[in-house]
């Protein structure tokens, strides 16, 4: 049971950085346990893409495709991952912290009676007892969680370990899965915005708050995001007002993000907002109120009216980008 199984979710047949991160993380845990890091990929992924997991230490990739895995069917995915864990003697199973991981990791936990730590923030601090760090209360405290079951499941919080190259010879094997029972859920339509930087993938996020005053004032935010290749986001009042879609809301009840650089523009920094952004490496705040709590959380701040400062800042970034 020293092997580690890593569920490498694909997005339209491709792996994202967060998947290479959990491949790196799972490989490191396998090294510590003296076992083998094995990936499982479900759905159609080209061989070359599967082999790319070898750059991050993975030595074997199990794969199953076909009708069952075209869309997410929780029970079928759960059965396949649980079967792979048993067949490969995996004592630790690793997931990302994506929506898919939220859907299936808890089910795998019950199926295998494997205790789960969701959104872990680093490597186990101890292998016996198996102890994993995570945030609780959305970052108001860090906790050590001991997993007492024989099998363990860890979902890794994005950007908390990093992508680490560790080239390995990789083999690809088909996983023979039993036919899934018919599900009483089915996907009837998929709607995706194309070409837009996604919040959870973004290295830089430009976020606007109530200080932007109206939905009509978002153009300079879009502009800054375009200059920096960033994603746009907003605070809760903004999405509640309908100025921006709910999917852009970052904060305790919206999305939890951890980019390298977070711009809080006209955001006062309510405790619920900070809970969603406090893992950002660098926070820049622009706000009219010098006592706004956002400046307690920020690394760099400008006291001023964001509507006046932002166009000038955009100009400065544009100049910088032209020169660098």
């Amino acid at each position: 049971m020293n092997n580690v199984l890593i569920y490498t979710e694909n997005f339209d047949g491709k792996f994202k950085k967060s998947i290479y991160e959990i491949a790196s993380y799972g490989s490191e845990i396998a090294r510590q346990l003296g076992g083998e890091p094995i990936a499982i990929s479900l759905g159609e992924v080209a061989e070359e893409e599967l082999k790319s997991l070898g750059n991050y230490g993975i030595s074997k990739v199990l794969t199953a495709a076909g009708e069952t895995f075209k869309t997410l069917q929780n029970r079928a995915y759960t059965a396949a991952i649980a079967q792979a864990a048993q067949q490969e003697n995996a004592g630790v199973i690793i997931f990302s912290a994506s929506n898919t991981a939220k859907a299936i990791a808890p089910r795998v936990s019950v199926k295998l009676k494997a205790g789960m730590v969701f959104a872990a923030t680093g490597l186990p601090s101890n292998l016996n007892p198996f102890t994993v760090p995570k945030k609780v209360f959305h970052g108001k405290a860090f906790a050590d969680v001991v997993v007492n079951s024989e099998r363990k499941i860890i979902s890794l919080s994005q950007n908390s370990f990093g992508v680490k190259e560790h080239p390995a010879e990789v083999t690809i094997e088909a996983l023979q899965v039993e036919a899934a029972a018919p599900a009483n859920t089915r996907v009837t339509d998929t709607q995706k915005a194309s070409g837009k930087m996604l919040l959870n993938d973004a290295e830089i996020i430009v976020s606007g708050g109530r200080g932007m005053k109206s939905a009509d004032n978002w153009q300079p935010i879009e502009e800054l995001a375009a200059i920096l290749g960033a994603a746009t986001a907003c605070s809760r009042p903004v999405s509640d007002e309908g100025w921006r879609p709910h999917a852009e809301h970052v904060g305790q009840t919206g999305k939890i993000v951890a980019p390298n650089l977070y711009f809080a523009l006209g955001i006062s920094g309510a405790i619920q907002h900070l809970a969603g952004v406090s893992s950002s490496k660098v926070i820049v705040a622009i706000n009219t109120d010098k006592d706004a709590p956002i400046f307690q959380a920020a690394d760099y701040g400008i006291v001023g009216d964001v509507q006046k400062v932002l166009p000038q800042l955009n100009e400065a970034f544009r100049k910088f980008k032209a020169e660098n």
């Binding site: 970052g139 969680v145 007492n148």
Partner: peptide, 25 residues
């Protein structure tokens, strides 16, 4: 239960925010 929270630590306090003049972005 299969898991147990055994120890907590408060988050590291953040260094003071560096303020920049609004006229000099």
């Amino acid at each position: 239960a299969l898991t147990e929270f055994v120890h907590y630590t408060p988050p590291q306090p953040k260094a003071a925010c560096k303020m920049i003049d609004a006229d000099n972005p």
